[in-house]
Design a protein around this nucleic acid. Structure first.
Lengths: 378, 378
DNA sequence: CTGAAAGCGCTAACAT
DNA sequence: ATGTTAGCGCTTTCAG
């Protein structure tokens, strides 16, 4: 009562509470609360009055008190390998778009591809009493017990992009097998016949599925599959370089490579250029992810767009459903959404001029096709 | 008392509270709290006991209750234009590194370069009762009243990278003038004599300073300054293309351009290549920011590294100081940290072979030099 | 239609 | 060294 009665008319250092606006209007906090929440049994004039003074006093509902009272933090936690991978940054964007629309806050932690930081993130989220968690597995993670523990505690959890079917955790992924198939099929259509695959770590469903898609396409076109044509990398530029050296050192080097993601593909491109191999003439290359640099390098890199923004949206939607149905824990079926990848063919894989865009100077990223993607629930 | 007495030994759906571990040990919540916080006047054995059962019951301190009680949310808000700009992603990383070390959570909002979303972010932060805010100005922002309001309310606020001196808000920036000077000086050293500048929006101190640095270097070498050689863009690839067309259309086209940041520079590079201009032979180009794509395009793009991770760290440190000294509001002086940018010379500006790296195949990003940067407080 | 009272989980005086 | 009490700001029975 003694400290700050002098209103300098500019300074307003006390954050205004429901109490304040109640006493200002000679009402009860309860009434003010109800008015603010548009409770049916509150007179229109009271609501009017309350809202006006709330506005005037710049009242902002204290989410902390709200959370303590209701037991819902209206905050979700997001774990992703690295925010500086354009791909994940874009998914985050999709998540946040919907989240803020639904009044949710988003806590983001980067695992930097390590299990250790995943665990730290989860602990932070538990302390923050997040209502649910979205996660994309770190590539260093092989022991998933920290995620299984979340399931046991009935914390809503949805995996996106990098998932693992054996975990039986709800997930939003793209159809990697189809993506692998489409990418490989494209190379075949472009006249390549000795097509290799630069694969990713085998403990990811994601990368195994892309490999399967690759095989599907070969089989369909009756091209032989050879394990010599599969090099397993670790999703880095360096391993792309290594793969290039390996493939070019073979007795019968391939004339095209489908790389499991764009950084590997970039390594391939760089090493091929260094060794004087012409792309796409002597070597066709296609990646996966549609990273930001794809359209800026020379030659521009073909890739498979993973519908990142939509993936983020779908992941949040699924999580929200889990959060809302938490009490009714009758697991009806394992929710799983599979998005279709969208091919983005650029120079690195296009040696048939007829297929080139008519305006090669301005290769635009495929973004508008979002609505065409199929969503099938399993 | 009726709902969940059946422990399925696996499921543990009730989040354990201080109360629970108190009754388990026949102690008071207060004592448990003290023990957990390592209060001096608590017996060692009690602490031991409490910590053990806390561990066993997987107790996690409820930050929400803590925040309500103490009035400190231990959360900061971060506003940045776009998380998918590698540059900002990297700063966020620096912020989070220190923040999590100090037990702070980080709420991130993207302004997408609009004032509107900046305001939304601030409102969200006020609701979340963040202890302080870090922000980098959106390029669309010319009215800064929402930030000034924060100052009036004594909400700790630190601007990073994109600041504005006239606002008198604490900030962490790099020495843009020096950066502009070094970039231009480098072009001069490489033998370029007709050096143009692709500038950024004039309402940013940041970009005006880079322009000043450009002028400094010209003056030092007694090269004439001409406003014809300054093209003002909007930090986009498109404006880089426009600039290229403008410069090449001049009576006496420049033989080099210092671009205010890398996306503009990329546009320049692309358009020059399309028009058959040889880089770096006929046209030297250097950008600013050291974006991720710089070392992947052809030719690789010279740039000025902005010490992003360190900038993030410094910004958080400064904010923390403000938060801790909030009550003692004797503004001693306006805190301001100016980091030195680090030149990263690559192919796009290097036409004197002697200056080329000895291992051009593996151009590494300059990262280890962090410790050499000067920090001077004003 | 509004008021009174309790309580979410925690900490910090103020006891003892 | 530990217990008692009160309260952070809000919502929500239960009463009028």
């Amino acid at each position: 009562m003694d400290k700050r009665l002098h209103n300098h008319t500019t300074a307003l250092p006390l954050r205004t509470t429901i109490q304040m606006i109640a006493s200002e209007l000679k009402l009860t906090p309860a009434t003010v609360s109800r008015a603010l929440n548009n409770h049916p049994r509150i007179s229109a004039e009271t609501k009017q009055l309350v809202n006006e003074t709330a506005e005037r006093l710049q009242y902002k509902r204290n989410r902390i008190a709200l959370s303590l009272r209701t037991g819902k933090s209206h905050t979700i936690g997001v774990i992703l390998p690295s925010i500086s991978m354009n791909f994940f940054g874009s998914i985050v964007h999709g998540i946040e778009l919907l989240a803020s629309e639904y009044g949710y806050h988003t806590l983001i932690y980067q695992s930097e591809e390590t299990t250790d930081l995943e665990i730290k993130a989860i602990e932070a989220f538990m302390g923050a009493r997040v209502d649910g968690i979205l996660a994309s597995l770190a590539k260093g993670t092989t022991d998933f017990s920290h995620y299984v523990d979340l399931q046991k505690k009935h914390i809503p959890l949805v995996l996106f992009d990098r998932s693992n079917d054996s975990l039986h955790i709800p997930s939003v992924v793209i159809d990697d097998r189809k993506g692998g198939y489409l990418a490989t099929k494209h190379l075949i259509d472009q006249g390549y016949r000795a097509i290799a695959h630069l694969a990713g770590p085998g403990h990811f469903q994601t990368f195994r599925n892309r490999l399967e898609g690759y095989k599907d396409a070969l089989r369909e076109s009756e091209l032989p599959f050879s394990s010599d044509y599969v090099f397993t990398g670790d999703l880095s530029i360096a391993s792309g370089r290594d793969a290039a050296d390996y493939f070019l050192g073979l007795h019968q080097p391939p004339d095209a490579v489908f790389a499991v993601e764009d950084f590997s593909a970039l390594g391939l491109v760089k090493r091929c250029k260094e060794r004087g191999i012409q792309i796409p003439e002597e070597m066709g290359i296609i990646g996966f992810a549609n990273e930001g640099f794809d359209e800026h390098i020379t030659p521009t890199l073909s890739s498979m767009d993973q519908q990142t923004v939509q993936m983020g949206r779908e992941a949040f939607k699924m999580l929200l459903t889990l959060i809302e149905n938490r009490k009714a824990d009758h697991h009806p079926e394992l929710p799983k959404i599979i998005l279709d990848p969208v091919p983005v063919f650029r120079e690195s894989s296009t040696r048939m001029k007829t297929n080139l865009s008519t305006a090669p100077n301005h290769p635009t990223r495929t973004k508008a096709v979002t609505d065409q993607t199929n969503i099938h629930s399993i």
